[in-house]
Amino acid sequence: MNPFSRLFRGLQRTRQGLRRGLGRLAGGSPGAGDFEVLEESLLAADVGPRLTEEILCALREEGGKGDLLERLRSEIHRRLEVAEPAKMVEPTGPEVILLVGVNGSGKTTTAGKLARRFSEGGRKVILAAADTFRAAAIEQAEAWAERAGCQVVRQATGSDPAAVVHDALEAARARGADVVLVDTAGRLHTRQPLMEELTKIHRVAGRAIEGAPHQVLLVLDASTGQNGLHQARGFLRAAGVTGVILTKLDGTARGGVVLPIIAELQVPIRYVGVGESVEDLLPFDARLFVSGLLEEDASSPAGAAL
């Protein structure tokens, strides 16, 4: 099955709604009612009131030429584009990827899927089970590693996660691994001591391998609301987030909060999670994401369920 059709399957149910809402303006110039439809649609997608207002302003100023939906699409597209960060020095040893995020966003699952992805691409992967807090998180990581066919470095529950990371990086160098995926414990961005722990993990990684961690990916649940922006800020401060992974996009949530996040942090979305199986992690596709964000029935934003 084509992986993209998976993503589409979720979106199809809600297709055509916005177009229908805007249908009556075909030809003429958009009126106040049309902007209201757009506003509700953006708000219902978790884009947030500020950025929604900004986008609508931009559309109004443009002066009503062309298809409104098409112009909206390109406004959003523009906001998803982020200048690729200048490639730092190519990692000489293994590439180290740190996964961070709040509780329940899907870090361990994503680590497992990434491990599989990299393994299949012919890279030798080590999974560092650095969530030493949550009961059975290590066992969960081990189960995923088995599915992905990669090695795990672990210690006992309750041990220092920075020590696990140190061990994993040493092991990776000794065994000639290509990638180290670090699964960290979920933490709320408001818990200062836990955020400091993350800073320490970051520092320890950098001491073990030069330039590590090479990527710090924020794992974000697509159903998150405006709090996602606060999360992103917190994790950026503590661990220097370099990219976002948007999980659970196969539900009805549309993940619009990444728009204000990208606008502020200027980091790209790397992957999206669209299902429970190992192959349901896809590289981010802006075009698909935007259509998913917009094709909602705006006349009843809560959708068919209500």
């Binding site: 159903s223 998150t224 609301g225 619009g256 809560a302 959708g303």
Partner: peptide, 18 residues
């Protein structure tokens, strides 16, 4: 339900309720 959920909370909750 996660208190950080956004607009989708309404839809997921009503589906479960149904």
């Amino acid at each position: 339900a996660d208190s950080m959920t956004g607009q989708d909370a309404v839809r997921s909750a009503s589906e479960f309720h149904q």
